[in-house]
Nucleic acid binder design. Structure first.
Lengths: 334, 334
DNA sequence: GCCGGTCATCGAAGCGCTTCGACACTTTCA
DNA sequence: TGAAAGTGTCGAAGCGCTTCGATGACCGGC
């Protein structure tokens, strides 16, 4: 790369204007004549100028960086996380921001540290638990934050997520409409429910509530992720619930195992058992047969989270809760 | 959070020393008496001081941030990527650095941008292709970089990766030692080979070379990731290669499908067909039966990449290539 | 033809930190 | 016993940017 980097002063000299004029061209905070603007922009591109991020942060009290706090714990669905992360980065770039990656290893310390050192302007947190230790911290942090997922006590926070309760209900409605009157939900591993992770519980609640609404019988079970455990769960289910003809799977890692188990138990999908998955589209499409699914709109959630956090940075009031409507896609399995 | 943030000047005043003294206590670049040091550190902790990252970057020409450039393309193993990412963040923190997340969406632009704006000091790139567009850019960037994976032309670069050729060879050796004399490698989807991704090809080369060394017959096939395609591939394989008794699977997403397919085709593992996977440990353990595997040491690779990039930042010369020795773990499938 | 009001631009004062040279003491050794 | 060589600390000069107040130039209105 061409030697030392170009400063705003060199741009100003090259364009024959004051340093402040260059700054105003860039920020648009004062009117600059079209002619001057063009001259400055030309110089910028000729010299290949990029503002020094640190200097900018120091003078403007904005780093133009947001922190993305990922958990990375047992039982989490890593591919989904990655899609969120990617969506957040892409969305942040459209607002001219970059993304600093924080993992949970540092716990609340990391959040405090990057906030206090003005490294980031705002936070996006993923995989929030019902009783999350980071929540009280965020509440009295000066920097705005947005949670992906809902804690038990979301007062004073901005949260965004798929409406999992609606997703669970939609699955029931879909199966009920096709005449299934005895169905089951296979959910996350037991440990995820015990930890109180919101999305797993909310799906189950939506599922259970909808059973009553539709006059359908059914059960909701946790579901581990090894083939043998899945097999046992499915076998037990078919044995204990004789009329069972519909299955909702809300566990990306177990989807494949469930299908294998059914195959091995001699049940055809969808003739003997209809299956709906709550999972990303590509997983549903890749299964055999392709699964009717309620997709987890990772990109949309990530984008929305960034939009909200940018609103807050701009001083606008953000809604406390944003629930994205689930979307059921019919495929070959129902 | 307590009002406006604390500056070094306030710490200095509180401790009764000069600003520069506080700075030297923090950086250790000049000797400070034990007594003064203690007083300063006390003031720092009493006031809750955190240096302003931007100011520090401006004055010292170091941001203490490294960029992690992730691809996120079709056919990639997202969970593995995430482990790398997590390992890189954790390792970076041990060197008092943070991690900025860059995705490939911005292409080489993003790299150029964050380098020019002094947002980051160095780069760690993941999932490098044999013919990677980012490679020439990195080569004449002033900022140091480390690649995870190998491009075709690694001259002038520092690369680190699992020794996939050795991994492929180890699998062959393991199976040969158990008396299998006709084996097959099921690899990544065809598109990954076509793109020239290094790890897929190198595994295959190691596998093929080792066949000859051990006097074992075998074939290497790409492997798609839907159940139906995997099933067809396995069925075809068993049909075309009558004596086949060993299978090496280097495709995390297909591992489960391969086992299901074998089950469905009436082959027992390991009695009829021995299976080795090249994949992270948890995938191998979760399979049924648990698979003998060569693990992909994501944590170790990430840590090593960060160590190398820190060495380069410190002005030490880093080795051009670091290949981590694969480790085969025997489980129930061979 | 002079006044108030825009409009476009400039200059300078920071933002909070690092680092360099200076300086006052000690210690060491011919 | 005095010069040389450390020690520990300070003050001030930036680093590259944003932003505020000031300054002309130019406009229409009476």
């Amino acid at each position: 790369m061409s030697g030392r980097s170009v400063t705003i002063a060199e741009v100003a000299r090259h364009a024959g204007v004051a340093v402040s004029t260059v700054s105003y061209v860039l920020s648009g905070k004062r009117t600059i004549s079209a002619d001057t603007r063009r001259r400055v922009l030309d110089s910028i591109s000729v010299l290949g100028y990029h503002p020094h991020a640190g200097a900018r942060a120091l003078a403007s009290k904005r780093s133009n960086v947001i922190a993305l706090v990922l958990p990375l714990r047992a039982g989490m669905h890593v591919p989904v996380l990655m899609r969120f992360a990617s969506a957040v980065v892409t969305a942040a770039r459209t607002f001219d921001h970059d993304v600093l990656l924080l993992t949970a290893d540092e716990g609340t310390h990391g959040i405090r540290r990057v906030a206090a050192s003005a490294l980031v302007d705002a936070f996006v947190l993923m995989d929030v638990e019902l009783d999350d230790r980071r929540v009280p911290l965020l509440r009295d942090l000066a920097e705005p934050s947005v949670l992906i997922g809902f804690p038990a006590e979301p007062a004073g926070l901005t949260c965004v997520d798929l409406d999992f309760a609606a997703a669970g209900a939609q699955c029931v409605a879909h199966l009920a409409a096709r005449g299934h009157d005895r169905i089951a939900l296979l959910g996350a591993p037991a440990v995820v429910y015990e930890r109180g992770t919101g999305f797993a519980r909310r799906t189950r609640e939506g599922f259970v509530a909808a059973l009553a609404d539709h006059g359908v019988g059914g059960v909701a079970l946790p579901c581990e992720e090894t083939f043998d455990e899945v097999y046992e769960t499915v076998r037990g289910l078919l044995h204990d619930q004789p009329g069972l003809s519909g299955l909702v799977v809300h566990n990306e890692a177990a989807v494949g195992h469930v299908l294998s188990a059914l195959r091995q138990l001699g049940r055809r999908v969808p003739q003997d058992v209809a299956v709906i998955a709550i999972c990303p589209d590509d997983v549903a499409e890749r299964a055999s047969p392709p699964l009717t699914s309620v997709l987890i709109p990772a990109e949309e959630v990530g984008r929305e989270a960034v939009r909200l956090v940018m609103d807050k940075l701009a001083g606008k009031v953000a809604p406390r809760a944003t629930l994205l409507t689930p979307h059921l896609v019919q495929r070959a399995s129902t």
